[in-house]
């Protein structure tokens, strides 16, 4: 009897979470899959009629001549036709040069930005793990980019990269007007924004390595590289895998920085997959195709995440 009541209570407590997940995760997921294999056309049938104008207490309003005034009421009937088009949208993905370009842009971005963030994060963490002048102040400064809104960062760097009289204008670098440089600039901003996060996590991990362990190793070898490669790096590995995973999943979704900094351009040089999906879905209102793109992205992310978790589990075993 008691168990029974417990079950009920458990159900009640779980219900909000379940409803939340169903409403905001499962439903959109299923709906967008449904959308991706359909062509949706929405039309409205409209008719207008004149109805008497009523005042607050429900009496007809009269005009100057004493005739009842009328107003227009719009009757709407929304007609959506869903045509099953099978995997047409997914076939379009395979043939669409914009998609190919977006995958290329996203891949280059991920493959350059994420490793750079990790390496820089580790180097900075190693630096800050030593005694350093004004360490806590510098550490606080280092972390500031984490607290900036990506969109604002994009606009901020638009000013910094401004080629006619901007602060970096003297370099003569076409930060935003040359396709390769533009992608590099996007990568640079992402590195600026996310290296601190990697740094923070790695610093915490480094400080979690017992001091005596490092001292024991130090007494055995004076090769700093040997200690890093054999002690520090292996002990950081689980953390690196987690950070890599988080950064990969985040970086593949790249959207806000190009949106604010380059508009995806010049041309499509910085148009990422998410950006393209956004334009397709919310600018061309080709929701089915945008859903197909998003699914494509989701599958890529899931494959990567699964591989990583498998690797992670192995490294813990």
């Amino acid at each position: 009897m008691k168990t029974h009541r417990n079950t009920k209570a458990r159900f009640v407590f779980l219900l909000p979470a379940a409803v939340w997940v169903l409403t905001f995760t499962i439903f959109p997921l299923v709906y967008s899959l449904y959308l991706s294999v359909h062509k949706v056309e929405t039309k409205m049938n409209v008719s207008r009629e004149k109805v008497p104008m009523l005042d607050a207490s429900g009496n007809p309003v009269l005009d100057a001549k004493g005739n009842p005034r009328t107003k227009i009421k719009i009757n709407r009937e929304k007609i959506s036709t869903w045509t099953n088009i099978g995997f047409t949208n997914f076939k379009r993905l395979a043939e669409d040069p914009q998609v190919h370009s977006a995958i290329k842009v996203t891949s280059i971005f991920v493959l350059v930005a994420v490793p750079s963030q990790l390496v820089l994060g580790i180097l900075l963490a190693l630096l800050f793990n030593q005694r350093l002048w004004a360490r806590s102040f510098l550490r606080a400064v280092m972390l500031l980019p984490i607290f900036a809104t990506p969109l604002a960062v994009g606009y901020l760097f638009f000013t910094i990269f401004y080629e006619e009289g901007g602060p970096l204008g003297f370099l003569g670098v076409p930060f935003l007007s040359h396709p390769d440089w533009a992608l590099f600039s996007v990568i640079l901003v992402d590195i600026w924004q996310w290296t601190p996060f990697c740094f923070l996590v790695f610093l915490a991990a480094l400080q979690g390595i017992p001091n005596e362990l490092m001292e024991a190793a130090k007494m055995e070898s004076k090769s700093k590289w040997g200690l890093f490669a054999n002690i520090i790096f292996p002990m950081l590995t689980p953390t690196i895998v987690i950070v890599l995973l988080l950064r990969l999943a985040e970086a593949i979704k790249l959207f806000d920085i190009p949106f604010a900094l380059t508009g995806g351009g010049p041309g499509v040089a910085t148009q990422s997959m998410s950006f393209l999906a956004f334009r397709t879905g919310l600018r061309y209102f080709d929701l089915g195709y945008a859903s197909a793109m998003s699914y494509c992205l989701l599958i890529i992310v899931m494959i990567i995440v699964t591989l990583f978790f498998r690797k992670l589990r192995q490294s813990y075993a």
């Binding site: 040359h178 396709p179 995806g264 351009g265 010049p266 041309g267 499509v268 040089a269 334009r279």
Partner: peptide, 14 residues
């Protein structure tokens, strides 16, 4: 928008 992207790619020399 398609025209625009292609124009931009031209103007940046791609």
């Amino acid at each position: 928008d398609i025209l625009d992207k292609n124009l931009s790619a031209t103007m940046s020399g791609e």
